[in-house]
Design a protein around this nucleic acid. Structure first.
Length: 280
DNA sequence: AGCTACTCCTGGTAGC
DNA sequence: TGCTACCAGGAGTAGC
């Protein structure tokens, strides 16, 4: 499932293919993929614009749009679980599960495909308004060990649901939360306000390290969904310590990895490396 | 404030 | 073989 490293990979690969192209038309096969914008309004907003900067915020991919050099709003894409973006020739036939297609100058097309239809390729007048509720970027300057420690202490929630909360930190999903918690040797059900400063700093470091390594491997393709815009799977799944490894030995201590459900999510822990809180 | 359940979806798979 | 039932999962929302 696309999380920060997968979206970062997609953005990096799409950037050279999209930058400077004009949007000349569109096809919409599944209206809800526009995220609540009516197709008519979407068409009026984007057709005739030129794509400027292409960037990422949390799990969102964003394209700045320009008209005659002035800002003309933004394309906002969230891949959710099965969304894919890629650029191809505009004349190619509709791909399997293709939901939206933007026809671009130079005979190219940006295709948004999404098996499960949870993703969005939408339009926002103002990206910073649309993304205002997102918490800090884990790879940004404001995400520091002391910030994390203070933020954890200010809440009273289990670690995992808190780290999955995009208004707390943006970009982490089920896979990277499990991986970072294991690397930091913290159990997902530990209460956030009971995490010592040293542990918070360790967690901070492991979140960053996990995300950086995942980006360096073009993300993770755990299931059939995530592919880079070039159609290649990511490679970070081979480095997983716990995610999807229930019953297999922990790579640190050999104890079988256990799967539990936390906040309705499959959750993977090493019962030895990640000691459960006493209250359990 | 923080929890649980439910919703949106489809493909894959388990069980019969 | 072919059917049904169930599951995964990000995020928004409702109810407690």
């Amino acid at each position: 499932m696309p999380e920060l490293p997968e979206v970062e990979t997609v953005v990096r690969l799409l950037r050279p293919a999209l930058r400077g192209r004009r949007i000349e038309g569109l096809r919409v096969w599944w209206e809800r993929s526009l995220g609540g914008v009516r197709p008519r309004d979407f068409r009026r907003a984007v057709v005739g614009t030129r794509i400027g900067r292409i960037w990422r915020r949390g799990k969102y991919a964003v394209c700045d749009l320009e008209r005659a050099g002035d800002s003309a709003g933004h394309l906002l894409c969230h891949l959710r679980m099965s969304g894919r973006l890629h650029v191809e020739g505009a004349s190619s036939g509709r791909g399997p599960h293709e939901r939206v297609r933007l026809l671009l100058s130079g005979g190219r097309a940006l295709r948004f495909s999404d098996v499960r239809k949870f993703g969005h390729l939408g339009f926002a007048e103002c990206a910073s308004d649309a993304l205002a509720s997102l918490g800090p970027e884990p790879l940004g300057r404001s995400f520091t060990g002391s910030w994390l420690h203070a933020a954890l202490r200010s809440r009273r929630r289990a670690l995992k649901p808190l780290l999955l909360d995009q208004s707390f930190i943006s970009g982490l999903g089920n896979i990277y939360v499990d991986e970072a918690l294991h690397r930091a040797r913290l159990h997902p059900l530990r209460r956030s306000d009971r995490i010592a400063a040293r542990s918070a700093v360790r967690l901070h470091g492991e979140i960053i390290a996990t995300l950086r390594e995942a980006i360096a491997h073009d993300g993770s393709s755990f299931d059939t969904f995530y592919r880079t815009p070039e159609g290649r799977p990511g490679r970070f799944q081979d480095q997983f310590q716990v995610y999807g490894r229930q019953g297999k030995p922990c790579r640190s201590c050999g104890t079988p990895v256990r799967r539990l459900v936390v906040a309705q999510r499959g959750t993977h822990v090493c019962p030895r490396c990640q000691r459960a809180p006493r209250a359990l």
